[in-house]
């Protein structure tokens, strides 16, 4: 508990430092939020832009703007989007839910199938299945997300007509869990390919490494049945690296997947971040970054705590 509290306290200055760096970077980038109000092909005068800039308080010095923003955040107010006046916290709440659903499903499929297959081929090194799944995992890991997304959409939606072409619900029909799952299957499946391949590779490697340990040989020598050796001695000890990889994947639950969300018109955090950056929508960008930083720090903490669960020898003081 003491360790947990200490980690939480240490994370607070880290979080503030992260917000300062991000605030600085986004403001140093060329352009500002008033650019959203400009249609380049129609045009606008410089005076009009200066007026809008003043209206949004963008003429204040950078440190003043940061302190104002931080003051609001401490009071639980993430501000409003420059682009359309939406409440940043409300937008985040909605988008996080959608991204969590998409990424969570993909991650769950990835873990369940990837770890299972990893164990399967980890116990059959250099077999037909090992070569087959290892080969496929290279394809899964190396295929760019936008290629996988367009390919999936083209084959399963355009050609086969099995799945919808994107979005989260069928327009004109009442909301239903089934309809949601129907729309979720293709983007989540696409994302799961990468997760699945990654977890399979790590699990296989970890299983192979542990299988060669002395204590595994001892377990076999003392007459334990193969399942007991596999689950109690090999898998349990092979879990640590897998826990690390899963922990590193947790931030994607909120960060979203830019290309997949874009190609499947899934309105999540990835698409929101791109939209916010393109519009130089500082409050929205800061809101997203704050949440992402929070989740990264929390995920690291959870991962560290999970080590102790996976390996009783690990103790935190």
């Amino acid at each position: 508990m003491q360790y947990f509290l200490r980690r939480v306290l240490v994370n607070i200055p880290v979080l503030i430092l992260v917000t300062i760096v991000i605030y600085l970077l986004i403001n140093l980038a060329p352009g500002d939020p008033v650019d959203f109000f400009v249609n380049e092909e129609i045009g606008i005068t410089k005076e009009d832009l200066d007026f809008v800039r003043e209206r949004y308080g963008l003429d204040d010095p950078l440190p003043v703007r940061y302190v104002k923003w931080l003051g609001q955040v401490v009071q639980g107010d993430l501000g409003f989007r420059f682009k359309n006046g939406d409440d940043v916290a409300e937008v985040l709440a909605v988008r996080l839910r959608r991204t969590f659903l998409l990424m969570g499903t993909a991650l769950a499929i990835g873990i369940a199938v990837g770890v299972t297959l990893g164990i399967f081929i980890g116990l059959r090194q250099y077999s037909f299945w090992d070569f087959t799944f290892t080969g496929l995992s290279f394809v899964g890991i190396s295929m760019p997300a936008f290629i996988a997304g367009i390919f999936g959409l083209y084959v399963f939606s355009v050609k086969l007509g099995w799945f919808p072409s994107g979005g989260m619900r069928t327009i004109g029909k009442p909301d239903s869990l089934f309809d949601l799952l129907y729309h979720l299957a293709l983007p989540a499946g696409t994302l799961a390919i990468f997760n699945l391949a990654t977890f399979m590779r790590y699990t296989r490697f970890s299983m192979l490494e542990v299988r060669g340990e002395d204590y595994v040989r001892t377990a076999k020598a003392k007459g334990l049945k193969p399942p007991a050796v596999t689950w109690r001695h090999v898998f349990r000890n092979a879990l640590l690296p897998i826990v690390t990889v899963v922990g590193l994947s947790l931030p994607t639950l909120v960060a979203g997947a830019l290309f997949t969300e874009t190609i499947y018109s899934w309105p999540g955090m990835g698409a929101l971040l791109v939209d916010a950056v393109a519009a130089r929508d500082y409050p929205m960008v800061m809101g997203i970054m704050l949440v992402t930083a929070l989740v990264v720090l929390t995920a690291n903490l959870i991962t560290d705590l999970a080590y102790a669960v996976a390996d009783p020898r690990i103790r935190y003081e």
Partner: peptide, 19 residues
């Protein structure tokens, strides 16, 4: 109905799929 797309490619695929 006006359906929103972030990307033109997604809209074209939606057209081709009949959505």
């Amino acid at each position: 109905i006006n359906r929103y797309f972030v990307d033109e490619t997604a809209a074209v695929l939606a057209l081709e799929s009949g959505d």
